[in-house]
Amino acid sequence: MIAVSEPARARAVVGFAAVLVVTGCAGSGNQSTVLVSAAASLTDAFVEIEAAFEEANPGVDVVLNLGGSSALREQILGGAPADVFASANPSNMAQVREAGEVDGEPRVFIRNRLQIAVPAGNPAGVTGPADLAREELLIGLCAEAVPCGEFGRQALANAGVSAAVDTREPDVRALLTKIGAGELDAGIVYVTDVASSVGEVDGVDIADADNVVAEYPIAVLTGAPNRDGATDFVEFVLSDEGRAILVKHGFESP
């Protein structure tokens, strides 16, 4: 198709490469690997969960494949043999399930809310969603295909705001990075993203009436090369210990 490297495609390739490494190594020792495809907004929490799970299960190596939920969905539907899928919205999970790729029922393990992120100190003086309509500001949103883009669109519609968008970033972390660098004046991300970048970004609340609650489902995949490890990992995420880590990172219990 196109002979260029692209961030999410690159992530897809990394995902595939990880899978190759995984399957290549599986037989060579007693180390087993669980490949977890997780939404970009779960990055910090899942890195910590990975460490806790590996400590509780010696000999198991968790490999995280983080990206926009829609990109992860495409990888799974394209045949990348992941073990676990954790999506930032039910619709991407539903599409994977309709394709017969989900083993059992997906379970909602956590909720998240939206917040407006601004560079630390809020140089543009953003006070609420209405400011996202200011033409003179550089406003970023997530692409509509990823959950934060879809939720952001809903929240803006709820608030009756037509945003003066300057860029639609491929995933929430890319958006957050550009806000943290001061290259964008404001953007809609998750509460947890703001919590993860204290000192770089500040959060501006969206009224509860306008805000959108995101439900995160998790499931073991039908094609999981390591079904036992995948089941253990999902149980761990749903356990008190796993949930405590998620809550620490700003998520809400379902």
């Binding site: 002979a3 260029v4 970023g140 692409a143 300057d166 860029t167």
Partner: peptide, 17 residues
């Protein structure tokens, strides 16, 4: 065919970038 540098530096907005 350029993609990576464009989306990282110039962002992604129909009609502009």
């Amino acid at each position: 065919g350029e993609f990576g540098a464009t989306i990282t530096f110039a962002g992604n907005l129909p009609g502009r970038t």
